[in-house]
Amino acid sequence: MNLMSEAPKRQYSEAEKAKVFDGEFFPHIDSMYNFAYRLTFDEDDAKDLVQETYLKAFRFIESFQEGTNAKAWLFRILKNSFINDFRKKSKEPAKVDYQEVESYYNSDDVDKAITTDLRIDMLKDMMGDEVSTALNTLDVDFRTVIILCDLEGFKYDEMARILDIPIGTVRSRLHRARNLLREKLRMYAKTMGYIKKS
């Protein structure tokens, strides 16, 4: 994990460690647990992932610079742990609309800024379950950028560091993710009869 390599090391006494954990790390447990759950879809895996993240944070605390964004630092560890240890065994929800989305994926349309026949009044009737399902059925890379940006409020540069990708990739991935999400919401509106099948 290159987590340790980039920043100059800083020594922490036991008391300082406790202070950083209580003041800067533990307050993010809520966001981390929710992120972990939306990656793994399993409560026990999410707990394990969060615990593992905190234990790594403890071991590698020398590479954490106080005053820098603790939440982004923790999210980066969590994301790496997920990729290394959890991704293979995590259960993705059943993809009912797999084919339709897959063909959309592979078309050039996904990069375009698209408008749809989705309208605001259709959104008003959507329940949390439907929106969650739309998000949860996105491919994990797309799901991740939406969570980081729209739910957790990370900036593009923070996301680039968390995900180890260039800012340009953050932007294009986010753009694709939103197009896909919008498409899923539209498909939902269609099944509910808000949009006529053409």
Partner: peptide, 14 residues
């Protein structure tokens, strides 16, 4: 849509 995502997606209690 942004508002929908922010408000409708339920937070899981830790």
């Amino acid at each position: 849509i942004r508002e929908l995502i922010k408000t409708k997606i339920e937070k899981k209690p830790v």
